[in-house]
Write a protein that binds this DNA or RNA. Structure first.
Lengths: 294, 294
DNA sequence: GTCTGCTATAAGTCCAATATATAATTGGAC
DNA sequence: GTCCAATTATATATTGGACTTATAGCAGAC
């Protein structure tokens, strides 16, 4: 049973004639006759009574006609819906962000995009890098915002921004008034760091290592705000990226002067993943937050 | 958009692999790949993400899948319904009968058929010959039972039975005691006849003409029972076919002795008209009431 | 690196839908 | 009855498209 057979059948039903149906369907009459016969053969019943001058539906034809029409209608509807979704910048966008970026970077781009495309429904999943990558590969999220570089032959990335690191210490700390601090000056200070699965912990430890400093960890948390509060309480010091810097009564932020004491964040997508119109639009939107390429 | 493309699409969705889908659909994998690509091209979107080892539906694919499944399901349902109607001796049978046959002949065959095929639903249209033929040609009735012969290149007929005619007169009539009567003996009798559009009126007049008798009509009706009552009341005499003969206090029935004083009834179907299983069964059932062919 | 498993591409085959031409049938005019 | 117009069915040839086989390309495992 083929689609064109159904089309021909409906055309004959409507015109009441093989000849006129053939004209309507832009096909030679014998071809149409054959296809109708083939359909009748497959169904095992005659669909039309050929009464010389005129052609009329049999009882079976009358039963089959509405179904054939429904099927043709649904074929068109299916096609239309896809086309509709294609032109409309609407539908779901699912993004993943690591916790050390989400609260600082995301609000603005998200708000701007939502205002530009009110039809888009964005879902944000906040999770650590490893699990975000799992979700990305599983197709659960369309893109992820995380720390760069992210290597892997199955992903594509671009950078959003690179930010300096800041040492954070209690107001009363001896280094608190400096405009800049070198990491080696922080040697032997008690460190407050993120938990192990957070990638910024690795970043912090990495830059320390580079400065020949082995941080002594006295507190671990899943978010900067806890760390800030603890530092403010005098528990120790820490390192945070620029975007986590905020005005606080109890804390002082001092730029880290070491070379390469920075974090780069960027966007990761799965290579070969087809993105819908909205998803693509969101990606393009994020691109506007990226540094100009020269 | 072709049916097999939808089948392939669903198969890939279910198996998550072009190769396994090809096996399932009994087709070479490249062919299946081509058809999927063709479908994607027609829709203008990618339906699958090809991610090396695995294949996954895109957002569009997820939208399209339920619709594709529905369409395939309805194709099958349409086919099944036709097949169902084909094997089952059930459904509508619409027959037409002239009023001078209906009450006498029809009850028995109808009852027997209904008992044999309880699923069949028979509709009887009682009307005069001309209008029955219109209905037959319009496809409103499947067959008609009427007086033979019925000529016409677009119909097929067979005879059911030939019956003698009977003169009907009041008990007190001078001819009432005879076993046989010739039409010429009825000359000058007041005649009660059916109305003009009833064919048995023509039959009666025809046999009279043959006997050189011009009936003087004093009453016309649409049914024999009225005529019988009037004859019983002494209004005059009439002629009826054998099947209309019944025991009555007030009437006497005397066989008409003239040659060819008979009526033949038969079944008419439209040539080239397709009959469903039940309709055919009813036709065959009527055949069992026909005289044996030698 | 090699091997395996998967999809895409290439080239050729073959069937089925199509077109053209014509026969067969019917309906209507005469 | 014959003849003509209209319609569908049949015959034959063509062609387009789905199919096959073979192979390339690519990712992942080892």
């Amino acid at each position: 049973m083929e689609v064109h057979q159904l089309r021909y059948f409906c055309a004959v039903s409507e015109t009441g004639s093989f000849t006129r149906a053939a004209e309507k369907e832009q096909v030679a009459q014998p071809s149409l006759s054959q296809q109708i016969m083939k359909l009748e053969e497959e169904l095992g019943v005659r669909l039309f009574d050929r009464l010389g001058r005129t052609v009329r539906l049999t009882g079976f034809g009358q039963v089959f006609l509405p179904r054939a029409r429904a099927i043709l209608g649904e074929l068109k509807a299916a096609k239309d819906e896809v086309a509709e979704r294609q032109v409309a910048v609407s539908g779901p966008v699912s993004i993943g962000v690591i916790p050390t970026i989400a609260p600082y970077f995301l609000p603005l781009p998200l708000a701007l995009f939502s205002r530009k495309y009110p039809q888009a429904s964005i879902t944000v999943a906040e999770d650590v890098t490893a699990r975000l990558m799992d979700r990305l590969r599983a197709g659960q999220i369309d893109l992820a915002i995380m720390a760069m570089p992210m290597r892997g032959h199955d992903v594509e990335t671009f950078n959003l921004r690179t930010e300096r690191l800041f040492a954070i210490m209690p107001r009363a700390h001896r280094l608190a008034k400096k405009r800049k601090v070198m990491l080696k000056e922080l040697r032997d200070q008690p460190f407050l760091l993120l938990r192990e699965d957070h990638c910024f912990r690795d970043t912090a430890i990495e830059v320390c290592k580079r400065a020949r400093v082995m941080p002594r960890v006295v507190f671990e948390s899943g978010q900067f705000s806890s760390i800030l509060a603890m530092v403010g309480a005098g528990l120790g010091i820490s390192i945070v990226p620029a975007m986590a810097v905020e005005q606080r009564e109890d804390c002082a932020f001092v730029a880290v002067g070491d070379d390469k004491a920075s974090r780069t964040i960027g966007v990761v997508t799965l290579k070969g993943r087809y993105l819908s119109r909205v998803q693509h639009a969101f990606l393009a939107h994020l691109h506007t937050f990226a540094p100009k390429e020269s």
